[in-house]
Amino acid sequence: MWELFGKKINSRLLLGTSRYPSLDILKECIGESGCEIVTVSLRRSGNGKENGFFKALKDLNLNLLPNTAGCTSVHEAVTTAYMARELFNTDWVKLEVIGDDYTLRPDPFGLIEAAKILINDGFKVFPYMTEDLVVAERLLNIGCKVLMPWASPIGSGQGITNILGLKMMRERFKEIPLIVDAGIGRPSDAALAMEIGFDGVLLNSAVSLAVNPPEMAKGFSLAIKAGRSGYLAGIMEKREFASPSTPVVGKPFWHGNFSK
């Protein structure tokens, strides 16, 4: 059990809802993953299918985390957040201000500026960011209560490309909920994020683009639980030598040396 903005959450997996083969498969993935928070977006009116999508999520009684995906300016991101707050009836927002089209790297300057505007107006901001400690510090200073560094570029499936950077974030901000967001490709990536002490993992494509998305959702759920247990249990230090796990004393035929 952990807490985000006063809400008690059991699952440490946050799941994106995009690019699934069908709405039914998305629902199945949500069930298999056990997630309680899903990300959603706003787009121009389409063909009416969006009604079914939204109703399905409402029926599942999930916490919705609207994003500002694709926004490249502070004004766009802030306006999108306002529309999302009204439409989804939540003050949570996954704030994305994209600074580079090719890598979808966040624009740290725009992110801080937009976050400040939104926090001052009562939003609970989940900032999509890199593992930059200075940006993290600034975001916390203006009132962010949670940080969401990427593992690697969105949708790349590259896994954690800067493990040292994420470890330093964990070390520096011990009391702040940290969620790895974006770039996760396989369950072991998520397990690793949890093993180094992250509080949660947000992923989408790794499940939705899997050959069998519901099975992958289950795999991620297990991996995140395993990684969390590993972190809580305390992982042994690596050694540069062998150390027998079975006691040597009492071994049959023991002569006290290695002569054959």
Binding site: G16, T17, S18, R19, Y20, L26, T39, V40, S41, L42, R43, R44, S45, G46, E50, N51, F53, F54, L57, P66, N67, A69, T79, T80, Y82, M83, E86, L87, F88, I154, G155, A182, N204, S205
Partner: peptide, 27 residues
């Protein structure tokens, strides 16, 4: 952004740009 409470009060003018967005899947 225009909140719902303002829909009846705002009359649209020539060349106004209106964005109407709906819930969609997102990551």
């Amino acid at each position: 952004f225009i909140p719902k409470s303002q829909y009846l009060n705002i009359r649209l003018k020539e060349n106004d740009q209106l964005e109407v967005v709906t819930p969609h899947p997102g990551g």
